[in-house]
Simulated scan of single mutants.
Amino acid sequence: MMLTTLVDDLAQASRVTSQSLEYRFYEHSAVEVFTDLLNQGEFHIAQSGHRAVVSAEIAENAILIVDPYRIQQVVSNLINNSIRHTPMGQEISISCRTCLKEELLPLIPDWVCLFPCR
């Protein structure tokens, strides 16, 4: 499984450098997408010998326009990095919440931002 992931990552890196990476954006329920991602992350963290702490505050009506495969790659990569850099047996937290108003975004700590925060 790790070898397959590595080969997929190398192929994707090649597509990124050649600028031929494809995205397939669709509307999805945020609750469904993040419930699946949080469950996968919690399982993966527990299997690694770490303690998973998961929290979610997602509005029932929230809709995402995402490429489900790409968002899964991003979250999986973040979790794998956390596992790799967290001492065995320690806690790894995953949380997500809906920010319905842009002015709420500064309340999120800077270390959470994947993109430059304002």
Rank of each mutant, 00 (worst) to 15 (best):
Y26R: 12
Y26A: 10
Y26T: 15
Y26H: 12
Y26L: 10
E27Y: 07
E27Q: 14
E27A: 12
H28D: 09
H28L: 13
H28S: 09
S29E: 03
S29P: 05
S29H: 05
A30S: 15
A30T: 11
A30M: 13
A30G: 11
V31Q: 09
V31I: 14
V31A: 10
E32G: 09
E32P: 09
V33T: 15
V33H: 13
V33Q: 10
V33Y: 12
V33C: 13
F34W: 15
F34S: 10
T35Q: 15
T35P: 11
T35N: 14
D36A: 09
D36M: 08
D36V: 03
L37A: 03
L38Q: 05
N39A: 15
N39Y: 10
Q40T: 02
Q40W: 01
G41C: 05
G41D: 11
E42D: 03
E42I: 02
F43K: 15
F43M: 13
H44G: 03
H44T: 14
H44P: 03
H44V: 13
H44M: 13
I45A: 07
I45K: 10
I45E: 06
A46M: 06
A46I: 10
Q47L: 01
Q47G: 02
Q47W: 00
Q47N: 02
S48L: 07
G49E: 00
H50Q: 12
H50M: 09
H50C: 11
H50T: 08
R51E: 06
R51D: 01
A52S: 01
A52N: 00
V53Q: 13
V54N: 04
V54A: 07
V54C: 12
V54F: 04
V54D: 06
S55R: 12
S55L: 05
A56T: 09
A56I: 08
A56L: 06
E57K: 14
E57L: 12
I58R: 07
I58S: 09
A59Q: 04
A59M: 01
E60T: 13
E60S: 12
E60Q: 13
E60F: 06
E60M: 08
N61D: 15
N61M: 10
A62E: 07
I63T: 15
I63H: 08
I63C: 05
L64W: 05
L64S: 02
I65K: 11
D67F: 00
P68H: 01
P68S: 01
P68D: 01
